[in-house]
Design a binder for these strands. Structure first.
Lengths: 231, 231
DNA sequence: ACAAAAGTGTTGACATTACACCCATGC
DNA sequence: GCATGGGTGTAATGTCAACACTTTTGT
């Protein structure tokens, strides 16, 4: 197919559904920002932005999340492209959505050049967003729910040392289900890459819980041997 | 974020991984074309093309597959976006990949304005393709393998009336596994939306197999009731 | 009658669920 | 010593995998 210039006048954007888990109030939260510029200046949206023609999307996602949260390294995966012709008032803008997971305690929310007043919202109290960002959010949340059961993503949302009650509550909150405590723990006991740190939780009111650690190296060795993660 | 024109000089393309199942030689096949234009004129590629700024991607996919195969309605789903900055020599072209499933007997391969000499290739004898189309093909095939187990996609690849041996062989070929005949058939027996047509296969050498039909309406009622498809 | 593929049930192994009490700690 | 959440095993059930013979048809 010949490529007349008229094809080269679309724009690419990324939008990031950034999730964090708040142990304090046991809520899954999503990061929303107020748009600094038109269209929809001042209104709530997912963090994101247009991508330079020579910029990689991974780079764009890193920059966006880092500029808002201050975090350097975090889990991210592409969800899918959102391509409705009329999704953006300024022209043809295809948005590639990313699911990002961060640890709340590493986050330092700051205004950036394109995102003011970033804030965490419990996923079930999310206000309406601009563009098709409600749809993107729903799709990303479904992906998170799906992937949480088959990939070790929970550990991206917790501190490197965590307790089993914390882990179980995280699963229950994100998946909106209940797990039997003993069955849940038995399943984890088979996962050799979840290690007892021999430490216990500090500063808690009653019996302190043991702290565990997710060993990424052991997990990737296990995975190469064909062992699958499943909750 | 302000939107200077420099953002609006990327192009969007779709690429279609079109799969069909050939009962005759029991192969899963993928549709490849020779490119009519530069870059890579004459070389093998996935069917696809640049998308007009006001054109929906679903439309683009339909046009492409119809122009090559003559088929009007077929199953398709987005796989994901391929976005490497250097994937296309003519500039920034983001490709959105689609998985398409067609019934071989409905197909009439014809040259089109952008695709010459379309041909079916057994997926395991696929030659190397241009751009990142090998990568796209791998990803789409993995998606097909994954979805075949949890969505009723096999019926998109078979005639509306099919036999259980055909269905089982299709699963075995696409997933590259073996199933126990009795276990496989028991699983299907629980699916009320797979109906006995009371007809049998004609013109076959030995004992004729019963013909079944996938009832889409019954399936979507079942699914609404929460029943999940699984092989 | 024979060759070839279609069709059919049962059993054991394993995985999943349901369920109730003792333990460790801070106050 | 009491209040609270942390931590532990067993039995029943359901699911999945293994397995061999009879039936139907065309020639």
């Amino acid at each position: 197919m010949p490529e007349p210039v008229e094809y080269f006048n679309s724009a690419i954007s990324v939008n990031c559904a950034v999730f964090a888990y708040d142990k304090a109030d046991e809520n899954l939260k999503i990061l929303l920002i107020h748009r600094e510029f038109d269209p929809y200046k001042g209104l709530l949206a997912l963090p994101g932005g247009l991508v330079y023609p020579n910029e990689s999307l991974d780079n764009a996602v890193e920059n966006i999340v880092k500029s808002v949260t201050g975090i350097d390294y975090f889990y991210s995966e592409q969800v899918r492209a959102f391509t409705d012709t009329n999704r953006h008032p300024s022209g043809r803008v295809v948005s590639i959505a990313y699911l990002c997971l961060v640890n709340l305690k590493d986050v330092n929310l700051t205004n950036s050049s394109f995102a003011i007043s970033p804030e965490w919202y419990p996923i079930h109290e999310k206000p309406n967003l601009v563009f098709d960002h409600d749809h993107i959010t729903d799709t990303a949340y479904q992906r998170l729910q799906n992937d949480l059961r088959i990939k070790p993503l929970a550990f991206e949302l917790l501190n490197s040392k965590f307790t089993l009650p914390q882990l179980q509550t995280l699963y229950e909150v994100v998946l909106n289900t209940q797990f039997d405590k003993r069955n849940f723990r038995r399943k984890l006991a088979y996962m050799d890459y979840i290690e007892d740190t021999k430490e216990v939780q500090k500063y808690n009111l009653y019996r302190p819980a043991k702290l565990y650690r997710f060993n990424h190296e052991k997990f990737s060795i296990m995975r190469k041997k064909g062992s699958l993660f499943s909750i």
